[in-house]
Design a protein around this nucleic acid. Sequence first.
RNA 1: GGUGUCGUACCCAAGCGGCCUAAGGGAACGGUCUGCAAAACCGUCUUUCAGCGGUUCGAAUCCGCUCGACACCUCCA
Length: 467
Amino acid sequence: MRLYNTMSRSVEEFESIEDGHVGMYCCGPTVYNFAHIGNLRTYIFEDILKKTLKLNGYEVRHVMNITDVGHLTGDGDDGEDKMNASAKREGKSVWDIAAFYTDAFMNDISRLNIDRADIICKATDHIADMIEVIRILEKKGHTYVSGGNVYFSIDTIDDYGKLARLNLDELREGARIEVDSFKKNPKDFVLWFTNSKFKDQVMTWDSPWGRGYPGWHIECTAMSMKYLGSQFDIHCGGIDAIPVHHTNEIAQSEAATGLKPWVKYWCHGEFLINDKGKMSKSSGEFLTLESLIRKGYDALDYRYLCLGAHYRSQLKFSYEALDHAKSARAALTEKIKALKAEAEEASELHSENAKKYKMEFIDAVSNDLHTPQALAVMHSMLKDGSVSSAEKLNLIRFFDSVLSLSLDRIEKEERVGSDEDIALLNERAEAKKAKNYQRADEIRAILAERGYSIKDTPNGSFLVKNL
RNA sequence: GGUGUCGUACCCAAGCGGCCUAAGGGAACGGUCUGCAAAACCGUCUUUCAGCGGUUCGAAUCCGCUCGACACCUCCA
């Protein structure tokens, strides 16, 4: 399969370090608030990546962190701790905040049919691992203590910023933020804080440098290497992580182990934007999955919307676009119900065309996760009369192993309704036969009020629960 | 100020030098079926890819300029 690598800025043939196995680390959420649907788009992309790897025969070890330590809103010793701020705002302890939003996140993930990572690790459970990495960096001369904090010195390595292709000289000129005066180089970053101007910092731990808390890049370095080894295959995240977070992770990780490259493939998901620009937690419109569901959408409508765009291009969100996804998914569901009514069981693929569609789907998704193409293949397949219904069911199940739209869980048209409802339906049939259309339409209105639509088919009428 | 990305028909969105007189979905409209609807199915929305130049036998695809949008350099997916 082929995959775009941010490090090389090109699509590369994917080759795992260890034959048949892939180690994959995905930056998880900071649990101080609900995830918005833009955040969720990235996890959907990572899910597609993981499932496509599996489709290609790889065994995947998937690790995701939960950042439950407070991050400062600025990189220096300034800004406000997000966890603390949320705790104060909601009148809860920081630990309660973390637990609450972690649960909320997991709930969103499962509603979107996103596979849970094999290992989900919390930053607060790995403080000792982080301290260990900092000690190694200190021993190797990559750190300095200034103003009470331990910093990583980027001038001790010669390839800082290679992922983002940063031009350090120009960046320094263009800096818009006030430089932390304790830093030797403005791009140095904190590994361990002991000196925060926020005296009410609740989450602190003992360390060789004093009681304090970790900087916000060290957790990913410590935890990814703990579970995936000192070098591994894939590291994912949103594109915004490239210039600072991932750049710093690489710097400290490669400095600590002396091994390059730390990560073989860097994969980043583009933003979901609206007419005002990107969604973000700190500004702009903040839409949660929950808010979409309350408006009557299904979580999978949103997943379908995301699948319709390539993960490396910005996707314009609007309710109009979501409505389209909803309609498209409803029509898909109808088609699959019909298939299930025509063929009880999926069958092996016999026809040439059925096999062709399977290949086309694999090619689409294996070519840097071209889900829009994969969806197009699926739609063409469904329309193709030369493929039998039983074969179509087989293909749908196969496609859904990556798409995860719960296509395989769609049951054949359910004949629902209480005895009373069915009696009404029969009365309508009688009325129609007697050409008493007024009564027939009355009954249709009554049933509609009870939440049913009537489907008239050549084989008789039946009721369907409205969505 | 610096660095990138992008602009595709009514909407979302693929395509990234010739299978493109541009996938797929949605909406709309017309038709078949139906007492009428709904659903389903069929058809139409195709000489056009922001604009203007250029390169080429050939450009939505490459180059230049103009206009517009977005992102990053600050916590952010």
